[in-house]
Design a protein around this nucleic acid. Structure first.
Lengths: 351, 351
DNA sequence: CCGCCATGATGATGCGCATTATCGAGCCGG
DNA sequence: CCGGCTCGATAATGCGCATCATCATGGCGG
């Protein structure tokens, strides 16, 4: 038995054994032969055989240093990845990311230890861009650090965002078409005869919320209804108060649209406590999908195509990475699928 | 505006600006000064300032090539990581792994693109050991490729397994103490007066199953009961047939122990169909925990400390990585927690 | 018989960093 | 005035690979 801790074989080992140069080995291993760089099939086969017999493995580190690709896609989340509270949010994205990465032959580099000493997450801990190991990166998270984004882009680092972010200058991102989906929800309710639609927007601002607002506004204009006294800003954590809901009802609301599904669910509870039947007396819809964990009533809402967004982000990134020229930043908005649930019904109220 | 794609600053850039050598910069950046390698605080500060002003970031690739640590822990799963079917299995491990990694200041490198053309997963696909980028690796998965393990170890690569694996030579691994936990389940049933305990072992072999078998055997010896005609080998996917269950009942079984919780649940269904009350007429226990997704009856079983196993694996790995000398391989078995559910009760059958 | 082109390679170089061995300056004791 | 010591640093080297420029050989047309 050879107990000596054998060194990993390198290209030069193969070269020596095969009687060729390290250069040749590199060319063969990487299939870099072409019209101008010629290695006859015989030599190639021989090199491969020796490589196999040695159990050769390309050192991805060295390859990367020498300018090659590592087939590594970074995944950076601005919040902690696995803990339970973010789980439902991130998981579908990850499924898509993993699927696409696997299909395209890339591995995933998950940056988890990014909580800086200041408590905030940043790509640049200690001034060190930890993402540099990856060929490119998919960034997700609600609390995106915009300065980091700009700096990253200016560094020439390739990345794709999941979620639209407004920063000066173009970015490549994948988002869901919240505006259109919101329009569909409004169409649905209007089609059911609702004219007084209460709108529970998100108190914390953000691009996704802005998109929904824009979609709502457009739909409102299209249908020409009025929202006087029917708009309410709601914190996701708290939900609306019973008093607020009552006020909206008194203002004539026959339907509610809430940004957050949890808010919608909370609302339904409140309505139930008030003895208001849903969807008999009042319809409720959400502008996002309910968490899987909660066995929710079949909420009228739309599904955010998270898995597809993850996949698409990776595909975009790889496309950029593998294209020779500097690729143009591009924005992709994937459609949401409208879900006509059991929390919306025809307007029974006389107008 | 400087639109030119500025190169990433390197140590030599800092060196030039600060009027020192690249070596000095490296020493300062890595805090490598000591009694023998002296850099006065003044110089250090100066170097740091220049580094910051340039927005310097260590290139982890180069560092890795040069033998440095990257604070990267690889996570390699022998099955696909995120798809739904494996989700419940892997997720708790990942939570633990992420938590420990974050606490210890390591990032996670998740190797996903490993499904070879032959269908099987291997670390060495295309001869490329992709794990090399990580300082060390946590390996998980049911279908462990033992050859890979041995090869990895012989390469001198540092890794920790989650789950015991029998291979020639020592490995560092973290497992759950299935044997002891199995003993506890048996004790519980015996304590309830059961003497004829049917044992539904796993048809597919594997170390965890073997541990359970060993624990059961030990408990059986300890209590001195007989299992003649009461042992059944069951496939997880199929579960026991009604005929088999009837046979076991006719052989006098008053309690059942199944390796797999899904088998136990299936068994309970079958017993219900046969009109046998659980736990009134017959007790059922499992030697693993039920998947969270299934709203199971409160099964008597034990919980496998997956999160802790993940944490511990990372801790062991980091310990090995950060110790100067070659660390001894070590095995850790974490205790499971027994859960006295509602599927086990006192033996009412006359003996 | 010489020049030229296609073929099949190879030697040298550098990626950015960590490390090893070494070195000059200054100071002190003899 | 020289040997030896400490302090503060540095030049050189190599990690394993990809790439660039170059080269030897042989066949073929002129």
């Amino acid at each position: 038995m050879n107990d000596a801790p054998r060194r990993r074989p390198r290209q030069s080992d193969i070269a020596k054994l095969a009687g060729v140069s390290q250069t040749t080995v590199s060319i063969v291993i990487n299939g870099r032969h072409s019209d101008t760089i010629r290695i006859p099939p015989e030599t190639r086969r021989h090199v491969f055989e020796v490589a196999r017999s040695l159990g050769y493995a390309v050192d991805p580190v060295a390859r990367s240093l020498a300018g090659g690709m590592n087939h590594l896609i970074g995944v950076y989340t601005f919040e902690s990845l696995f803990p339970m509270d973010h789980h439902d949010f991130y998981y579908p994205f990850l499924v898509g990311i993993e699927g696409a990465a696997e299909a395209l032959g890339y591995d995933l580099l998950m940056f988890t230890s990014a909580t800086g000493s200041d408590g905030g997450r940043s790509i640049y801990r200690d001034g060190v861009n930890r993402l540099g190991l990856a060929d490119g990166c998919v960034l997700l998270g609600k609390e995106t650090n915009r300065d980091d984004l700009v700096r990253l882009r200016n560094e020439g680092f390739r990345f794709v965002l999941i979620g639209r972010r407004d920063v000066p200058g173009p970015l490549t991102y994948v988002t869901a078409d919240y505006a259109h989906a919101t329009g569909e929800v409004v169409d649905h309710l209007v089609g059911l005869g609702h004219e007084r639609i209460a709108y529970l927007t998100a108190a914390d601002p953000g691009e996704p919320s802005a998109d929904r607002d824009a979609g709502f506004l457009a739909a409102q204009r299209r249908h020409g209804f009025d929202t006087g006294g029917l708009v309410l800003s709601v914190r996701k954590e708290e939900g609306p108060s019973a008093a607020e809901v009552r006020r909206l009802l008194e203002a004539g609301a026959t339907a509610f649209i809430a940004h957050e599904s949890v808010v919608a669910l909370r609302l339904i509870d409140i309505l139930a406590e008030m003895g208001v039947d849903v969807p008999g007396a009042c319809s409720v819809a959400a502008l996002s999908d309910p968490p899987d964990a909660v066995p929710a009533p079949e909420l009228t809402c739309f599904r955010i195509p998270r898995r597809e967004m993850g996949m698409r982000a990776v595909e975009l990134l790889v496309q950029q990475l593998e294209s020779e020229e500097e690729a143009e930043p591009q924005a992709v908005a994937l459609p949401c699928t409208f879900v006509a649930g059991r929390t919306s019904g025809p307007n029974r109220k006389e107008t």
